[in-house]
């Protein structure tokens, strides 16, 4: 909570990462840091919802398949509570059908793991400029 406020002070846009995979939670913040963003990580959708970073988050990098609430379910949840954060989905599964579905629901991008740093940067930038 304190961290969130701190980051806001330095005016770096907050990007939140929700993924149950530890490698992603460890590696992405450093890369996002290199891009000049503040980053927070959460291991589940429930943890993210319970935090008070929701309103500060400018872009949400969201895993699709997770134990408990899935990524698309979180997307719906946010929509229903009218907190429409731009979402970049990431997924390790190769099911092509899922991409048009989440885009249809308003996601900015859906990246298949592993993705390149530039693809991620493009996606986050689109998200930040979407409003």
């Amino acid at each position: 909570m304190e961290l969130c406020q701190e980051r806001r002070v330095v005016e770096r846009p907050l990007v939140s990462v929700v993924d149950d995979d530890e490698s992603v939670r460890e590696s992405l913040p450093d890369l996002l840091g290199e891009f000049g963003f503040a980053a927070r990580t959460f291991s589940s959708a429930e943890e993210f919802l319970a935090s008070d970073c929701v309103d500060q988050t400018r872009c949400l990098i969201l895993d699709i398949a997770m134990p408990g609430m899935s990524g698309p379910q979180l997307q719906q949840e946010l929509k229903l509570s009218r907190r429409e954060i731009p979402i970049v989905f990431i997924t390790a599964s190769r099911e092509e059908a899922v991409r048009p579905q989440v885009l249809e629901q308003g996601a900015i991008e859906c990246l298949f793991k592993p993705f390149s740093d530039t693809a991620l940067l493009d996606a986050v930038n689109s998200a930040l400029h979407s409003k």
Partner: peptide, 25 residues
Amino acid sequence: TASIAHEVNQPLSGIVTNASTCLRM
């Protein structure tokens, strides 16, 4: 296969992200 691809793509994703970050640093 689908579940295996998932299993393999997770660490691969970490590798790519880490290596990119490393280069930038």
